[in-house]
Design a protein around this nucleic acid. Structure first.
Length: 577
RNA sequence: CGGGGAGUAGCGCAGUCUGGUAGCGCGCUUGCUUCGGGAGCAAGAGGUCGGGAGUUCAAAUCUCCUCUCCCCGACCA
């Protein structure tokens, strides 16, 4: 490709709208342009990267035995009503009507459609395992799209769905995808972690996320320092402190109400009463789609709302408004407590061992001290509700947990029979019995993967593409277009490399070398061949590696083999992870 | 949907408080000179000041309404 004919509108300055590095650099490198909030066009350079990522995905999916399909983006409401998701999905689901006033939506994911295919086509256990995937545009009407391709409303996703006769089959398919995903992200050149995750709206029984490590990541990853436990913060557990057996020889003191004028926060109350935050039990009132509930947790800890929601089996869990708190407890926020409370009470395991603790008294400006479980408080259920903190102990091995930031580029789920049950996708087993198909689903954000690569690989001059997903492998830069010999050599090298299968860009623009160098750095081409007058007189050409700035001079007629060797080397290097 | 900020030339911004000729840098066009890290000089092109209504002799500037975008919070590739 010749630069002069390639649409590559680079920018010197960061666009005002961009906040994170990948968004800024994608814009500046002429890869994307915005049409509306969270909706982007891919310009030629951006599309090349997308296609590189897609190619790796296709190769690995095919290798794993999956077959590519392409499903419709517009889907009828009826199908979504069958799975209840027409109601459940909420506003992220972009709905519309066609000319006959029929309800439709733009697919945010394709479980319904693929399961519809499965229920029509799969009749026998002999037809499984089956894994179908597609690479397609999705639309999710996010409340707050941001960070360019990192969280768009319209985005390209690879989604795959596995169909098996039983759990054992699903386990196998899941493992196969797990391995394929590892290969995909390894081949893209990422440093990443696989973490246990929540299943969210997709539903199902187990799930893992593939996280590219980057400071700007939106996700917090909890990872054990010594074993391989890793989980999303929302899912992460810590080793539990067991309740002390039959009390530690301390007899509980009598319950007592104390005045705490205007002491609304844990900090206020504990300071006032001269106790530690961990000696207090926080009572948080939540509104859920199954009514109001109270959650108890130690004063120095935070509730993980996702865990609470999962435990309660609710889609929607939010901290109650002032009115609701007043209605449930009889006092304003800050004075809620479990003693005599009539709503459902769920307690985090952290309070199990506590004796003589402090709580709100459900009365304005008053707290109880010497509160004790059993005697004063009736807990409906104990559960793990806490947000894990850095330094907590690993639930598996008991060593310390650390935190990382990550970008979620892939997510795999064991769906089980959630969709096959709802949509009646069944088959006959070897005994002629009708059974539900066991499903898994597996997603990769393609655009986000490209963005994540930039977050992970860039410097102050621009993008540093890992070779496997670079839009071009090499760029040829003649330093001065007016010197015929330089241009001729550059042209010759360009043709030679092209005909040898190297993806090469020839910067044939009539601009100063500084401009060409800056742009080459910005768009992040791994190898730069500089054709300068002085070197050329000695029959030499300069090769510069974007990733480390290393430059070497090589004989003009050894360009092809050197470039090929370097490309090979960098491709191999990315496979090492 | 709350809370904060912004819409002025392709991009980045000033001008708005205190109404009166629409400006700067980059980019773009032409010419000459330059050419190994975003060149110099000269001459140009380019704007319904997001949109609508109002106040006024006069509105980018004041008032009201609206649209859009960005940032901070609720699980999502």
């Amino acid at each position: 490709m010749r630069y002069s004919q390639f649409m590559l509108p680079t920018l010197k300055e960061d666009p005002a709208e961009a906040e994170v590095i990948s968004h800024k650099l994608m814009y500046r490198a002429g890869m994307i342009r915005k049409l509306a909030a969270g909706i982007y066009s891919y310009l030629p350079l951006g599309l090349r990267v997308i296609q590189k990522v897609e190619r790796i995905i296709r190769e690995e999916m095919n290798r794993a035995g999956a077959q590519e399909v392409l499903l419709p983006c517009i889907q009828p409401a009826e199908l979504w009503m069958e799975t209840q998701r027409w109601e459940e999905y909420g506003k992220d689901l972009l709905r519309m009507k066609d000319r006959h006033d029929r309800d439709c939506c733009f697919g945010p994911t394709h479980e319904e459609v693929i399961t519809d295919i499965a229920r029509r086509e799969i009749r026998s256990y002999r037809q499984m395992p089956l894994n179908l995937y597609q690479i397609q545009t999705k639309f999710r009407d996010e409340i707050r799209p941001r960070f360019g391709l990192m969280r768009g409303r319209e985005f390209i996703m690879k989604d795959a769905y596995s169909f098996d006769a039983d759990e054992a089959g699903l386990e196998k398919s899941y493992q196969e995808m797990y391995k394929a995903y590892r290969r995909i992200f390894t081949r893209c050149g990422f440093t990443f972690k696989v973490v246990e995750a929540e299943t969210g709206l997709i539903g199902g029984t187990a799930s893992h996320e593939f996280m590219v490590l980057a400071q700007t990541g939106e996700e917090t990853i909890v990872s054990c320092q010594s074993c391989d436990y890793a989980a999303n913060i929302q899912k992460a557990e810590a080793k539990r402190t067991r309740p002390r057996a039959k009390g530690p020889g301390k007899t509980p003191n009598p319950l007592k109400k104390v005045e705490t004028p205007d002491m609304k926060t844990v900090a206020d109350v504990t300071k006032f009463l001269k106790v530690r935050p961990r000696d207090l039990v926080k009572t948080l009132i939540f509104e859920t789609d199954q009514g109001v509930a109270a959650a108890l947790i130690r004063g120095d800890r935070e509730i993980n709302q996702t865990k609470l929601g999962t435990h309660l089996g609710c889609e929607d869990v939010k901290l109650a408004s002032d009115d609701v708190v007043l209605g449930a407890t009889g006092a304003s926020k800050g004075f809620a407590g479990p003693v005599g409370l009539s709503v459902k009470i769920i307690a985090d395991y952290s309070i199990e061992p506590m004796v003589d603790f402090v709580t709100g008294a459900n009365e304005q400006d008053a707290h109880y001290i010497n509160v004790n479980l059993g005697r004063d408080v009736k807990v409906d259920q104990f559960a793990d509700l806490q947000m894990v903190r850095e330094g907590d102990l690993c639930p598996r091995c008991g060593k310390s947990l650390s935190f990382f930031r990550g970008i979620e580029v892939g997510h795999i789920f064991k769906l089980g029979t959630k969709y096959s049950k709802a949509l009646k996708a069944t088959y006959l087993d070897e005994n002629g019995r009708e059974r539900e198909i066991v499903m898994g689903c597996y997603g990769i954000g393609v655009g986000r993967t490209a963005a994540a690569a930039i977050e992970q690989y860039h410097d102050e001059d621009g993008i540093i593409w890992p070779m496997p997903i670079a839009p071009f492998q090499a760029i040829v830069v003649p330093v001065n277009n007016k010197i015929a010999a330089l241009m001729k050599t550059a042209e010759g090298i360009y043709r030679l490399l092209s005909s040898n299968g190297v993806e090469v860009l020839l910067d044939d623009r009539d601009s100063t070398p500084g401009v060409k160098f800056k742009d080459a750095d910005l768009i992040g081409i791994p190898l730069r061949l500089t054709i300068g007058e002085k070197n050329l007189k000695k029959g030499l050409v300069e090769i510069r590696r974007r990733k480390n700035g290393e430059t070497t001079l090589i004989e003009k007629d050894k360009v092809t083999e050197t470039v090929s060797a370097l490309i090979h080397e960098e491709m191999e290097a990315s496979l090492q992870g």
